[in-house]
Amino acid sequence: MNVVTAARQKVLVAAVDWVVMPGEYWVIGGPHGSGKTDLLMTAAGLHRPDGGFLRLFGQDPAQLSEAEALKQRTRIGFVFKGGGRMFVDLTVAENIALPLCYHHGWSTEQAREEVQAMLELTKLTALAAETAHSLRPDLRQRVGLARALALKPEVLFLDEPAAGLEAGHRNWWRDFLGRLSDGSAFGAGQKTTVIVATSDFSLWHEDKRRYALVKDKRWQILKEHSEYPQID
């Protein structure tokens, strides 16, 4: 993938040369405002790159028909930062049920079992009937995760999922994403490709992971985790 990401005509990250293989666990580091979010959204196919080319699952999203693009989109999950962009007029359970009902044509009743499984997986069962207004941002972020996982995506992008959280919640996210990556989170052993953006490498420090850095508009793949620099 060779992407030039731009927002409001301003190039944020230039000459990104990046290939993600199935099952990999990537940690993308960079200071605040370095363009990690735009890079992630572009890589997830939510924004178009201003230059270069982007291929998702070997296909150019711009060349796909509407049905093919929709199929491709459901293979990718995205967890937004700062509260996960939970739909405020829906409850936690309804937020999780929404993609299931929309894509499978299910009623809320038909989606109940899947929603329940997702609530248990993300430890949100007790909050199923709550709305966004009554939830703390860290829990909203977790609802964003459960909603993104509802369709069991093959690739999951997470934009600073643990930023601003207490140590306990940060560890939960790290452990959960680890289990998601090695296939032990879902019962069927489905391995998920995980791509995390962070402004602090230290939480995601582990041997099996791959690291890249976005800084001063430059994209750099780090060869070893021991190489990762202080971001700020």
């Binding site: 989109r73 909603r147 369709l151």
Partner: peptide, 8 residues
């Protein structure tokens, strides 16, 4: 954007 990310 969250809707678009979910393919809705």
């Amino acid at each position: 954007e969250a809707l678009e990310a979910l393919g809705i």
